[in-house]
Simulated scan of single mutants.
Amino acid sequence: MKKPNHTPAGRAMTDLVLELFRASTRMITAGDRLVADIGLTSARWQLLGTIVSADRAQPVSWIARDMGANRQNVQRIVNDLVKDGLLEFQPNPHHRRAQLVVLTDAGKETFDLAMKLQAPWINELSEGLDVDAIQTTHQVLNQLRNKLEEDQKD
């Protein structure tokens, strides 16, 4: 079988993407373990974090867009978190059917607890890694995500 003809950048990006897939799987597993005792999963935690970081309450479709996730999957998780009392729906003055998703006090407490667990864990995980390399990796991933988002608009 003939090998694909990658440019040096294409080969490096292929290696990076494969490593991202492996790291992502392990990161999700580690996150699930970290927050399991407080009733969260990585997906639930990520959704709560997206809501916390938004500048205002949003409907599910906007949250999904911000997460880069499928709206139906986000809707399912939101519904579960509403049942658990961590989120609630509020009327949307701009759209009758697309209710706004809002953290409850219990949701805020749970998210804060998750972040208290995260701080020592991430500090230990990053121990011994070069801060400049971490920042460069972040910049490259941000540029990659932006290019992918632009490609998906077409």
Rank of each mutant, 00 (worst) to 15 (best):
W121S: 04
A23I: 15
R26W: 04
V17S: 05
K116A: 14
L117V: 07
L103N: 02
T25E: 15
N70L: 03
P91H: 11
D105N: 14
S61R: 13
L86S: 07
E109V: 04
A64S: 08
P93K: 02
E88N: 00
V140F: 12
V35T: 00
N92K: 01
T136L: 12
L113H: 13
H95Y: 06
L87K: 02
E127F: 09
V74Y: 01
V52A: 12
V101A: 01
P4Q: 03
T110H: 01
Q152M: 11
Q90R: 15
G49E: 06
E127C: 05
L47K: 00
E124D: 10
I63K: 01
V60W: 07
E149C: 04
A106L: 08
V82M: 03
P4C: 03
I77D: 01
K116P: 05
K2T: 09
R11Y: 13
L125G: 00
K2G: 13
G39A: 00
E150P: 03
T137H: 07
W45L: 08
T137G: 04
R11I: 10
V102L: 03
I28G: 02
R65I: 11
V17C: 06
I28V: 15
L81H: 02
A69M: 07
I28K: 07
Q75D: 14
Q135D: 05
L103F: 04
L16C: 07
S42W: 12
R97I: 06
G39R: 08
Q135S: 09
D80L: 14
D37L: 05
R76Y: 09
L100D: 00
K116T: 15
Q118H: 14
N142E: 13
L113E: 13
I122C: 02
V131N: 08
W62F: 14
R56A: 09
T14S: 14
E19R: 12
I28D: 10
R76M: 11
I51P: 00
P120M: 01
D15T: 13
N146W: 08
E88Y: 07
V52Q: 13
D55H: 11
G39F: 01
K147I: 10
L47G: 02
H94T: 08
N73F: 07
Q152L: 11
M1K: 15
N73E: 11
E150R: 14
N146E: 14
L40E: 04
L103H: 05
P93W: 02
R65S: 13
D37G: 08
L34M: 03
R96S: 13
M115R: 11
Q118E: 09
P8W: 07
L125T: 03
T104A: 00
L125D: 02
Q46C: 08
L48Y: 04
D80V: 12
I122F: 00
D55G: 06
A30E: 14
K153D: 13
A114H: 05
L129N: 08
A119W: 08
L20P: 03
M27W: 07
S53R: 11
R56G: 09
T41A: 06
V101Y: 02
Q152H: 12
A106D: 10
D55A: 11
A36D: 05
Q46W: 10
V35E: 05
K2N: 07
L144A: 07
